[in-house]
């Protein structure tokens, strides 16, 4: 189970490098979405690993709420880029 978690840390490095290197704002939003989902799933894995249901509930909440924040931010950025172009 720990090996699964270490593999997930390695997978977490991929969007981090993508966010570090790519200058395009939508590529960074994609990296943010990937990181937000991956960290939430990692919290769930840790909850199972430690047999702690409190962390599990928090992981589910973060999984749903983190994506809501992402959609709000994407909406504002889209309206902004529309205002700049048009």
């Amino acid at each position: 189970m720990t090996l699964v978690l270490i593999a997930m840390i390695g997978a977490l490095l991929i969007p981090m490098i993508e966010a570090l290197r790519d200058e395009d704002i939508w590529q960074r939003m994609l990296a943010f979405a990937s990181i937000a989902t991956k960290t939430s799933v990692m919290i769930l894995v840790i909850a199972v690993l430690q047999d702690d249901w409190m962390i599990g509930v928090v992981g589910v909440l973060i999984l749903s709420v983190g994506n809501a924040a992402l959609m709000l931010l994407a909406h504002i950025i889209k309206r902004l880029s529309d205002a700049i172009e048009g």
Partner: peptide, 28 residues
Amino acid sequence: YQALIMRGILGSLAALIYAMLGGADVAL
């Protein structure tokens, strides 16, 4: 705006670390 996206990434990682160290309420 790009700094705000980075702030979101930082918040996700911080929530993961807090939950891992046992602070579920802090992570939430």
